[in-house]
Design a protein around this nucleic acid. Sequence first.
DNA 1: AGTTGTCGTTTCATGAATGAAAGGTGGAAC
DNA 2: GTTCCACCTTTCATTCATGAAACGACAACT
Lengths: 299, 299
Amino acid sequence: MNERWNWEDLRLFLGVARGGGLAKAVGATQVSAPTLSRRMYSLERTLSVTLFDRSRDGYELTSDGVELLRLAEAVERDAFQIDRWTSNVDRAPRVKIAAGAWTSLFIARHIKDLLGGDDDIAIDIIAGTSQADLLRREANLGIRNRRPEITGLAGQRLVQVEFAVYGSDAFCKTFPQAGDDRRFSECDWIAFAPRGPVLPSAAWLSDVLLQRPRFVCSSPNAVLEAALAGAGLCILPCFIGDAEARLRRQSGVLDSLRHDQWLVSHDDDRRDRHVSTVSKKIAKLMRGNRDLFAGKLMN
Amino acid sequence: MNERWNWEDLRLFLGVARGGGLAKAVGATQVSAPTLSRRMYSLERTLSVTLFDRSRDGYELTSDGVELLRLAEAVERDAFQIDRWTSNVDRAPRVKIAAGAWTSLFIARHIKDLLGGDDDIAIDIIAGTSQADLLRREANLGIRNRRPEITGLAGQRLVQVEFAVYGSDAFCKTFPQAGDDRRFSECDWIAFAPRGPVLPSAAWLSDVLLQRPRFVCSSPNAVLEAALAGAGLCILPCFIGDAEARLRRQSGVLDSLRHDQWLVSHDDDRRDRHVSTVSKKIAKLMRGNRDLFAGKLMN
DNA sequence: AGTTGTCGTTTCATGAATGAAAGGTGGAAC
DNA sequence: GTTCCACCTTTCATTCATGAAACGACAACT
């Protein structure tokens, strides 16, 4: 029965008190005049105090209103401390991006493209992820290989990604059969198998090899290093394979591994200024490299 | 686009932070768990800060959350100053009652019945009023002679009121015709005519008198004093006339002036604890004197 | 005297916020 | 291994808050 006064009403009161009326407070508070009218009546009721003399000229503070203004200004000073705290340079906003292993590597290499600009946004990359993470805000953005279908998530298509077989120059000189179908039976293979669900590329490889890959690793960097060191052949997305000067593509693009990349975020986070900024930069970066992703830049 | 954080969310944050989770904060904040969940996500988004590590055990503050808790506690201390200010004894809540002139007089005489009790409610009586005043909060309660029909007002019926002709003992000994119909042509009259719309009793008197009343006044006290001094006859509601030892009723009750008294308040004010308290006391006072109002206690 | 402008309030359609109920998760108890 | 419990999140029907548009009041201007 005894309704409490609302702290947000106090913030609105400051705007009305200083403006001398509702009309001038609309700008300062970003709330409409009818709403301010109701909120001021509500505040008076819940505080059991008459704060304003209302006239056609606007709202004039009563003596009680003047006293409340003094007290509200103390609240406001403390609220400004919070604003200051959040805008403190050490408190740069942080956007977490969950992406597949190879995509994470790509982004890491182009991180300067994402960090540029006036606002000091920090970026966390979480390599490997599941969908549940965005709803729980374990990440703000996800780069996925399919459109989001869960309620509450929004997505935009980025690029198409192609995969192919790659081996180092040295390896391929030693084993010329790497360039044809004998590669599956006569060459050593390196497989990338992170924890969690089996990657499509790993499943594909498992189908075509007569025996288990010679080297299986959960770390994409290790897989890449092993390939560069001539330990065997491996399947890579073209945006990684074609970008490596020391790797040579050994096959055409693997049709069954082709997919689209989607940038996914929580519906609410789309309104977040920092998440929005980073989204735009990721989209620009990846769309600007669409040919690399599409396997059109074979080295 | 850059949404501001909500001061009320901060108050809810305090509850969640101290409770270590949503469940314990429900009681402290009087807000449901789903709403608290959404409000905490909203606060994190608008501050661009992760405040909680969420687990099945509840919400544990992050290091940023601990810092915000410290800042929020300063805001809370200021808010407590406001609570203290409104509950300060010098700031006793005040309820304004708008009532007709005679009803105001009746209430003034029984004011002790309304002022008793633990809570120091101050009462302002505004004698004479129009309906617009309750919507504009010029009064919290109105005692009216008809049911409220304007949207936003609520009413409860109190008592039925009768009117009659009264004269002083002295006057009636000098003019025995005061006791019969010759009173309209052979006696002097005193009329009560306050500013504003013509009162029903004044209109009635105007219809039956052959000439203008000898004494017309806008002050009910002056009218009453004049009658007591033997200046003439007047029409009074029974709850005033019968309560005066020196006045004698000279007629039966005047059927055409009979009406109900209603206690009217603004819909919102009904939830105000002080207005509610005073409403109940007024209802008790008037219903406890229903016979006096109804003219059944002729002296 | 009539018109214009400003301010606050009222009306009402719309969208947002809320909370009851249900579901999901994971540790504790048996 | 199964069941229970506590907590948070999701669903969805309902309620409530909001703001655009309109209205009322009144002072200023012509």
